[in-house]
Design a protein around this nucleic acid. Structure first.
Lengths: 356, 356
DNA sequence: GCAAAACCTGTAATCGATTTCACATTTACT
DNA sequence: AGTAAATGTGAAATCGATTACAGGTTTTGC
């Protein structure tokens, strides 16, 4: 069914049908005729043809690193909220943490007709920068700082620092000491690639700074790199525990990694304490009882909080960043806003069992 | 940059450029010229115009109920694996569990040019059926049975039944009894809307059948309905625990709901056993120690398994269903396969601490 | 050496919509 | 009444690509 056929059936010109569809001058009489024909045929105009002509799709593309992620879903929820209120729809492209796929999908969205793109950033390569500079459609980057596009990012350094202080305090409270020698070397950190400036650099450096401010030094031997997966966190933590039996706190760059670390704690105890009988629950009790090994994260994952009761973590305004990002994007799309914007969002410490 | 401008710059016709791009007859000389111009300008052909003409996009749209979900992400991972191998790209639309949005996005994909659609189904309304019957583009439904499209679904009834039997056994082992009176009324079930035929009907009826086969009856007073969220599971479980202090097992329709139930157990114990001191970990120990309240789920969520050590659950071939779904879709798209297919995939019981 | 096949090329039609334009008809206002 | 403004209308141009077609050149085969 094309607009021509509809026009023919209704005995009008295709222009009339188009006007009917888009609210131009059209007599009641023809309106009725067209309405009827469309009703009968179930005609739906081709979005592609319309977009080819009008250059407007009322569509926004969002490129995300993975879909099974609470942080990502909070951001997209924020985006979706704004978009749907303003009559836009949202399409997602997941890149599975492969930066090249990111470029591919950015280009897809660029040529495909979307009015704007939100990139939930991980790493910003030269390729990314080139895209941002040359892109025909407006782009907003969420989660990473960049000069080449409007961006909204979180205060990862500040969050890291706050966590560092919290961890240092936790250690001192546990050990009842305030010296450096006694506490250093008992806190471990599982980070991510430094290519990710927000999480891999700022957050980690903030963490180090926070520790240092409280007189604790993070030793290189006590750090590991992981991917953004639970599995990867599991292996990194296991490795740490094997090598350094004196570890008291494992701080992780994300809650997902922290979940993996918790899993490792379970497995570790199974090996180390075979006499802790195999009855269900016993191991977990043992683990949780070992108050000398604690895990911290970043991101305030609700799932983790629910099933473990919560670990020290940081709440970022992910949903807010989605909301602001979408608003920024629509400003550019609809009002042609030209002034570049960089927005930094704060955070909130979430401590284990904070209700007490 | 359009093909015409490129043609102009290279001193050839637009047809020549098109042939260069798509591999038609073209002399080496012009090839070189065009290559250079494209190189310089960074020209990228408009996908929309191309598709308008060719009716092929090498794109598949996937409509999902939510993105922050392990099951959904496993399905999409399977789809993506097949698609990328065959040179297709994947676009996602998330509906946030709102069936009307599902229709909206299905229509978007239909008019937007995608070659095919995968619908990860929740409920199939009359509206859905109408779409499936009339759709211009091929559709595969994953996760629900339907007559109106190729579909791939899981053996939810069988899985439910197996879980029912497992639960019954667990109860008997705990109570050391085989009678009906003593065991009935101590197992609770948190299900979902019956509009979801797979999870809300088949899975639940299977569960009931499984229990019954072992002489246990699921009483209506011990069942609740929840959404597909942790929060909803939390409230349902709390409600159950409040009303029936004798509950021994809470079986949940999904692992996500089960996570909520575990959270409820934590909160419940905090209220019921105030003397269980507030020291971190103590509550959790208390909970896990209460071997008389257990939680089961469906879906084999890895996150849940990692941080809790695992609960009895069922593993479905989500990734496989994605793979098969994509293959089915491509068969229709590329080879015009006409024979309708219904595919039922099996399952595997996963029991807590099965390694022992 | 000559026909057939293969190789190149540009013009113009096409995809399915929107929108400009030129023109006709009403309605409103001095 | 006479002009201006508002309302309707369809033909044709347009968006940016692909491709059928018609025609020209070179290569191949015998």
């Amino acid at each position: 069914m094309t607009i021509k056929e509809i026009a023919q059936l209704a005995g009008v010109s295709s222009a009339a049908v188009s006007r009917y569809l888009n609210g131009g001058y059209i007599s009641e009489e023809k309106k009725e005729k067209i309405r009827k024909v469309i009703e009968e045929t179930g005609y739906q105009p081709s979005a592609q043809a319309r977009m080819l002509r009008t250059k407007r799709a009322c569509l926004v593309g969002v490129v995300v690193p993975k879909i099974n992620s609470e942080s990502v879903s909070r951001v997209t929820a924020g985006i979706e909220q704004v978009l749907s209120r303003r009559g836009y729809q949202m399409l997602l492209a997941s890149t599975d943490n492969e930066p090249e796929k990111e470029i591919t999908y950015l280009r897809l969205f660029e040529n495909y007709p979307v009015d704007g793109i939100v990139l939930i950033g991980t790493v910003i390569t030269a390729e990314h920068r080139r895209f941002l500079k040359e892109s025909k459609v407006p782009v907003v980057v969420v989660g990473q700082y960049t000069k080449y596009a409007n961006c909204i990012y979180h205060d990862d350094y500040g969050a890291g620092k706050a966590m560092g202080k919290t961890v240092a305090e936790l250690m001192m409270r546990t050990n009842g000491k305030r010296g450096t020698e006694e506490t250093s070397g008992k806190v471990a950190y599982i980070g991510v690639t430094r290519e990710d400036k927000a999480v891999g650099v700022s957050r980690e450096e903030g963490f180090r700074a926070g520790l240092k401010a409280s007189g604790v030094e993070l030793s290189e031997a006590y750090t590991r790199k992981a991917e953004f997966t639970m599995d990867s966190g599991y292996h990194a933590a296991l490795d740490l525990l094997d090598e350094h039996p004196d570890i008291q706190i494992i701080s992780c760059a994300t809650d997902t990694i922290a979940a993996g670390a918790i899993e490792a704690l379970l497995a570790y105890s199974r090996e180390q304490v075979p006499e802790a009988a195999s009855a269900s629950g016993t191991r977990m009790m043992y683990i949780l009882n070992r108050s000398d090994i604690r895990v911290t994260g970043f991101g305030d994952n609700q799932f983790l909080k629910a099933v473990t009761g919560g670990i020290p973590t940081v709440h970022f305004g992910y949903k807010t960043s989605g909301i602001r990002g979408a608003e920024l994007l629509l400003d550019v799309i609809e009002r042609g806003e030209k002034i570049p914007v960089e927005m930094k969002l704060g955070f909130r410490m979430v401590n284990e069992n904070e209700m007490e």
